[in-house]
Amino acid sequence: MTRTLWDSTVGKKVIMAVSGLVMLLYLVVHMIGNLKIFFGAGEFNHYAHWLRTMGEPFLHHEWALWLVRIGLVAAVVLHGVSAYHLSRRDIRARPSGYVHRKPRAAYATRTMRWGGIILALFIVWHILDLTTGTVHPGGFQSGRPYQNVIDTFSTWYGNTVYIVAVLALGLHVQHGFWSAAQTLGVGNATRDRILKTTANALALVLTAGFVAVPVAVMTGVVS
């Protein structure tokens, strides 16, 4: 069955749909966690600390966090590799375009590939900035995420990179969620409207929720 999935265009889309939904679920949790910044440094830092202690004493310190990280890396790799294989195939399947060009498909649909590449690059920067602190502006303080977030969003490029990536994410989720439902065979004529509405709502809530943090730092609501 694994081979059937991997060797078929329909199967690879199923892998993309499932890995995409895993990442989407993570993003919803991540966004809710981020919004704790509005309750002050104490609560935000406490939450960040809890992420390392969750599952204790059954799990060792940071084990739960690492399990989540492993799952996410697997999802990102499966999603990306499948997308690469399918995209190459798609481009080969349409070698010459039409002379008479027309704007095709919705903006979110057309930007899935570039949007995905932007998001992959963003994830690398985001981890180097706020998890490892390698490219963090100013002194990165492990265990003090509140201050680190403010440092990042006090730079123009930190805000620009983050907001562009979040907008790309919104577009990606808008088409991706609905598309995943079709791939998994959940979509039909009667459910189409509710699926599209859910996709739009998810895209909007995630974009607004993530953008709220840099905007709050820029406007001084969070300092």
Partner: peptide, 27 residues
């Protein structure tokens, strides 16, 4: 190629085969 749910096929279809057909086949 593979399907990216762009929906151009159903728009072009002279017989009105609907886009949800693809989801039904995936199922």
């Amino acid at each position: 190629g593979g399907c990216t749910l762009a929906g151009e096929c159903a728009t072009a279809c002279p017989k009105g085969i609907p886009l949800p057909s693809i989801a039904a086949m995936n199922k």
